[in-house]
Amino acid sequence: MYAFDLKDELLYGYRLDKAEVTVTAPRSDNNINISDIFINPYRNPGNGLGNNNTNTNPTPLPYWEYSGGENQDQDQKPCKGDPVKNPEIVSSGKSGKKGGTFGCTRKDSNMVCGGVKGLKNHDGIDIKAKVNTSTFAMHDATVSKIRNSFNPGQYKKDSYGNFVLLTAKVNGKTIFIKYNHLNKVSVKKGDKVKAGDIIGINGNTGNAAAKGVIPHIHIQTYDSNWKSINPANFLHTKFDSNYNSIPNKC
Rank of each mutant, 00 (worst) to 15 (best):
S95K: 02
S95D: 02
S95P: 04
G96Q: 00
G96N: 00
G96A: 11
K97E: 08
K98C: 12
K98A: 04
G99I: 12
G100W: 11
G100N: 05
T101E: 03
T101M: 12
F102I: 07
C104N: 09
T105C: 09
R106P: 03
R106S: 04
D108V: 07
S109D: 09
S109V: 10
S109Y: 13
M111C: 09
M111N: 07
G114W: 08
G115K: 10
G115F: 07
K117T: 14
K117N: 13
G118S: 07
G118E: 14
L119I: 11
K120F: 09
N121T: 15
G124P: 01
G124T: 07
D126T: 06
D126K: 02
A129P: 07
V131I: 15
V131N: 12
N132P: 06
T133W: 10
T135K: 02
T135A: 11
F136I: 07
M138Q: 07
M138D: 05
M138N: 12
D140K: 03
T142G: 14
V143C: 02
S144G: 11
S144E: 15
I146A: 06
N148G: 11
S149N: 13
F150S: 01
F150E: 02
F150G: 03
N151M: 15
N151T: 14
G153C: 12
G153Q: 06
G153R: 06
Q154S: 04
K156P: 04
K156V: 06
K157Q: 13
S159W: 05
G161L: 07
V164H: 00
L165H: 08
L166H: 04
T167N: 08
A168C: 08
K169R: 10
V170S: 02
N171Q: 13
G172H: 15
I175M: 01
K178W: 12
K178T: 05
N183T: 04
K184C: 09
V185A: 08
V185P: 06
S186G: 09
S186Q: 13
K188Q: 15
K189A: 15
K189P: 03
K192V: 07
K192G: 01
V193F: 01
A195V: 11
G196Q: 15
G196D: 06
D197Y: 03
I198C: 14
I198T: 04
I199G: 01
G200H: 06
G200F: 00
I201S: 07
N202D: 15
G203I: 10
G203Y: 08
G203M: 05
N204G: 05
N204T: 12
T205M: 13
G206L: 02
G206N: 04
G206H: 01
G206T: 02
G206D: 06
N207Q: 14
G212K: 04
V213D: 03
V213I: 15
I214P: 01
I214M: 13
P215Y: 05
H216C: 08
I217H: 00
I217V: 13
H218T: 05
H218N: 01
Q220D: 04
Q220L: 10
Q220E: 06
T221C: 00
T221D: 01
Y222S: 10
Y222I: 05
W226H: 05
S228D: 10
I229K: 03
I229N: 04
